[in-house]
Nucleic acid binder design. Sequence first.
RNA 1: CGGGGUGUAGCGCAGCUUGGUAGCGCGCAUGGUUUGGGACCAUGAGGCCCCGGGUUCAAAUCCCGGCGCCCCGACCA
Length: 572
Amino acid sequence: MRSSTLFGRTLREAPAEAELVSHRLMLRAGLMRRLAAGIYSYLPLGWRVMRNIEAIIREEMDAIGGQEINMPVVHPAEIWQESGRWYEVGPELARFKDRGGRDLVLGMTHEEVVTDLARREVDSHRQLPFMVYQLQTKFRDEPRPRGGLIRVREFVMKDAYSFHHHQEGLDAYYPQVCRAYINICRRSGLDVVMVASDVGMMGGTGAHEFMLVSEAGEDTLLICSQCGYAANREVAVLGKTPASPVATGELRAVETPGMRDIPGVAAFLGVTPSQTLKTLVFVAGDQLVLACIRGDLEVNERKLANLLKVAETRLAGEAEARSLGLVPGYVSPVGLTGYRIVADDSVPKAGALVAGANREDHHFTGAGYGRDFVAGLVGDIAAARAQDPCASCGNGLEMTRGIEVGNTFKLGVKYSRALKAVYLDAAGQELPVVMGCYGLGVGRLAACIVEKHHDERGIIWPVTVAPYHVYLMTVGDEEEVVLAAQDLYTELQAHGIPVLYDDREVSAGVKFNDADLLGFPVRATVSKRNLRAGAVEVKRRRDTEAFRVPVDSVVDSIEQTLAQEAAAYTVR
RNA sequence: CGGGGUGUAGCGCAGCUUGGUAGCGCGCAUGGUUUGGGACCAUGAGGCCCCGGGUUCAAAUCCCGGCGCCCCGACCA
């Protein structure tokens, strides 16, 4: 490709809308352009990157037995009603009607469609297991798109779906997909961490996310550098060794004037926060819930919602709590009846605690779980924080931000049961197929690569995804220079090397700067100066030094350099 | 959906406080001189100053109401 005919141009200054490095560079390099919030067009250079990433994805999915298919973007409402998500998913699911007034949706994910396909095609256990995948555009009406391609509304996603006879089959296959995901990221130049995650709207029995550790990330991760435990904050567990449990003594009411928070009460009564009971008032659906936890810990609302099996919870306001007969600042389950109470599993083990007395300016001391109060539901609802002990090894957890590039879910039979995707086993028994689903954001992967591979001058593409491998340019417009450059251009192409030839009539500085901005792995410069010495200058994007290479061995030299670059991104 | 910011030429911005018919840099076009890190000279094109309403002799500027976009939060496979 010649620069003079390449569609799209570079920008000297980034549009004011862009803040993230990847966003700025991708706009400046002319990879993409915004059409509306979270909706982008891909220009030739950007689309080549996308295609390169897709090629890697195809290889890795095929390697674990995947079969590529393509499913519709527009779905009839019926299958979404069958799965129940028509009613569960909010406005991020774009809905519209066709001319006949029938309800349709824009596919934001394809569990319904693929399950419908499976129920039509699969009758027998002999047809299982299998995995299908597609690379396709999704639309999700996100409440807040941001950061260029980091969070968009329309995006290319690789989504894969596996179908097994039993949970054991899925359990055995699942790690292969995870391995493939790690490979895809590695080959694209990204080291990602696999973290345990919430199942969210997908439902199912287990899930992981593949995260690029980055300040630009939207998720918070807790990682143990000692044993390797890693989880999204939404589900991260922490060790809850009792600080210093006090044997349960007598339950006594004491005056605690104006002491409405844990640190205040603990200090006033001379105990540690871990010897107090914190009780928070939540609204879960149409129900009021009192959530109890040891005073030094905090409630994780995601975990609470999961334990209660509701979509979400929210903290009740003071006035709201008061109107329901509670005394904010002094709420506790001790002596209360008629309320739904849940407790973190730290509470029953905590011994005697200081708890609210449900009256102004009073607390109880010596409150013991089982004797003075109980909860209808006990489980892990504690929020893991930085420095909390790791649940498996006790080491301090580290907290970082991460960008989710992909995720994997063990769906189980949620969709196959709802849509009746069943098969007959060898004994003639009818069983629902056991499903898994696996998503990967192609554009987000591209943005992450730029986020990790750049310097102050521009992008530094890994050769595996670079739009072109060589940036060929001239300095000066003497005939000998132009002819030599054209020869080299032809020769590189003959060797199958993707090359962009900057044949524009602009000053050398412009070309050098664009070469750095676009970030192809190798730059080749033909100039009168070097030609006189029978040489062409070759420079790696990530190096600062350039080398003179004899004209007749330039192509060999470039091929070797590219091979070295590629070696850094191979797996196995 | 809450909080903050912003909207003037393709991009980056000034002008708005104090109303008087729109400007700078880059980019673009043409001609010429240039060519190892975003060259120089000359000429030129390009604007529903986000939209609607109001105040006024007169609105980019003041007032009211919308909308777009960005950031933080809520939310998010």
